[in-house]
């Protein structure tokens, strides 16, 4: 598709590889170049499903755009087409539909040149040429670390995010740029939000730290956001709280039933709440409990009774504050972190 006319050069040249030279005159939309592009597009369409209506990437598809831009008509079916099984790979993240693959090799290159995992390559020759993982294996057996880089670079709907299938197409979602909450690298990406729910994460070329690259957690680890087990408010053991029964009865706090094997019920016959039951409180109350206990221990045993474990999920600024808190407030140097993967 990148062919252009270069004055004095024989035939069309590939714009992506031809070195520029002094005084070179290049025509990008010459008649010959446009005709060749049309031909290439029409060839691709003769072996491509005509299912834009139901395709996940409708509206965000390079093939669709180019076919539109170059005014290529849908060719009458006349000849062999591939019929590959849809979503044949058992991996949890990447949805594969080779019927849509145009063999552009962007996934192969993304995996090889950016991610250095060499999962993808082409097998067989001619019309039978086919994208395969490893030696035509499941992706996870072929060194795949599920970064989704291949999906991010796929210009058509051949590789897509499995968790997002059927949940919303490009024009149905709102993109919200955010910073990844997993580690301190600070990757940016777009949350694709539909009806208030994240349905997909897409990476963005203009992300300053990471560009199109993301790791498996950043790209696919967003299901915790809407997960029903997610804690959004603090839980405190009943025994640390004053007037638990009343405040629960009044509805100020809530008794939370946690699925765990208990010897005794959380609420006994006389209405008393068991000491180890979890109570959902407000942040002020919970932090007061923690602060009170820190203060007590520090007084009793000194600062070195504490050791602190910080997190790579925090930002640098948060970790800085954590360090300062550890050394100045708690009074110990025993602080470490988990970013030693």
């Amino acid at each position: 598709m990148c062919v252009v006319s270069v004055e004095k050069a024989r035939g069309l040249q590939t714009a992506c590889t031809t070195p520029v030279a002094e005084g070179m005159i290049v025509e990008t939309e010459s008649e010959a170049a446009c005709e060749t592009r049309q031909f290439v597009l029409e060839m691709l369409l003769t072996d491509h499903p005509n299912d834009c209506m139901t395709c996940e990437v409708n509206g965000d598809c390079k093939l669709q755009d180019l076919v539109y831009d170059y005014g290529v008509e849908w060719p009458e079916p006349n000849g062999r087409r591939h019929v590959y099984p849809i979503d044949p790979d058992p991996n949890p993240f990447v949805f594969i539909d080779l019927n849509k693959c145009i063999l552009c090799s962007r996934c192969v290159r993304a995996c090889e040149e950016i991610q250095n995992r060499d999962v993808w390559s082409f097998a067989f020759r001619g019309f039978e040429t086919k994208l395969v993982a490893g030696t035509d294996q499941p992706m996870l057996d072929a060194r795949c670390e599920s970064c989704g880089q291949c999906v991010a670079y796929c210009p058509v709907g051949a590789l897509y995010d499995k968790m997002s299938v059927g949940l919303g197409r490009p024009n149905q979602v709102e993109k919200v740029r955010t910073t990844c909450s997993y580690c301190g690298v600070g990757c940016n990406f777009d949350l694709n939000v539909r009806n208030g729910e994240i349905v997909r994460v897409t990476s963005a070329e203009d992300a300053p730290v990471n560009g199109m690259a993301l790791c498996v957690k950043g790209r696919y680890g967003y299901d915790y956001v809407h997960h029903r087990d997610r804690l959004t408010r603090p839980l405190v053991r009943a025994k640390w709280l004053p007037d638990v029964e009343e405040r629960v009865t009044e509805g100020e706090w809530t008794l939370v039933e946690v699925a765990e094997k208990r010897a005794e019920p959380t609420v006994s016959g006389n209405g008393a709440i068991a000491g180890d039951a979890f109570i959902e409180t407000d942040w002020g109350t919970a932090l007061d409990v923690v602060a009170g206990k820190f203060a007590k221990e520090k007084q009793a045993q000194g600062g070195d009774a504490f050791s602190v474990f910080a997190s790579a999920k925090c930002t640098n600024e948060e970790n800085y504050l954590f360090s300062k808190f550890t050394r100045q407030v708690l009074g110990t140097n025993s602080i470490d972190h988990c970013a030693r993967l």
Binding site: T36, V40, M43, F127
Partner: peptide
């Protein structure tokens, strides 16, 4: 049979 499969005109065109 022998087209390497890189360029669509050769890969698909020869089959057509």
């Amino acid at each position: 049979d022998e087209s390497c499969g890189k360029c669509p005109p050769c890969r698909i065109g020869s089959t057509r």
